[in-house]
Amino acid sequence: MMSTDDLAEVESLRLLGSAPVARLVVSVADVIDIYPVTATVFGGDVLFRTAPGSKLAGLAANASVLVEADEFGQQVSWSVVVRGLARRIEDREELEAIEPILRDPFAGGRKDVVVRVTPTSVTGRLVERAPLETDVVLDAPD
């Protein structure tokens, strides 16, 4: 038996910002791509570092994106989806203001481009699994 609860927007964004990896979904024409990113949540927006390439090309063609993160545990799991508009941050003052709070990307290499996703909707769900009578803990053999 499972219990599912909707999360408040503030809690959803907090969880998304704590995830080691989030996923950015970009759609161009009939092609949908998904990219791992390390998200920072600041002022209700989702920020991430990236490098020039197909991700940025996709954002330039269609700024409407989705960012998703989740965590699955044995008893408690959560999932957060942010729909929004993405834009590359090019203003030097804006970059200098957010640079100190940006998380380092999980993937190595140079990531000099910063993208800001301004949410149009934020949804989050918390799932708690009740223990089942059939749950059995097996002892490891000696």
Rank of each mutant, 00 (worst) to 15 (best):
A60Y: 11
A19D: 11
S27M: 06
A19E: 06
V137P: 01
P131A: 09
A39G: 08
P36R: 12
D45A: 15
R110M: 03
R23D: 10
F72Q: 15
V122L: 11
M1I: 07
E128H: 02
T120N: 10
A130I: 07
A86Q: 00
S77Y: 05
T50M: 09
A57E: 15
R49M: 08
D5P: 00
W78F: 13
V76G: 08
Q74K: 14
T118N: 07
A140S: 08
R88D: 02
I34F: 00
L16E: 02
R116G: 01
V81W: 00
R23P: 02
S12R: 02
E96W: 03
V37S: 04
E96K: 09
E133G: 15
E96V: 05
L126W: 03
L102P: 04
S79I: 00
P119M: 09
D30Q: 14
E68P: 03
M1V: 06
E96G: 07
L132H: 14
D112Y: 15
V115W: 00
Y35V: 06
N62T: 11
D6P: 09
T50L: 07
R125F: 10
L16F: 14
E99Q: 12
A51N: 11
R87L: 14
S79Y: 01
I101D: 13
V117A: 05
T38W: 08
P52V: 05
L85P: 04
D45L: 01
V65L: 06
D139T: 03
E128M: 08
A107Y: 13
A69H: 05
A107V: 13
L95G: 10
E11L: 09
R92C: 02
V82G: 00
T123Y: 04
S79N: 12
L16I: 01
F106S: 02
Q74M: 10
A140V: 04
F48E: 06
I101A: 15
S27Y: 00
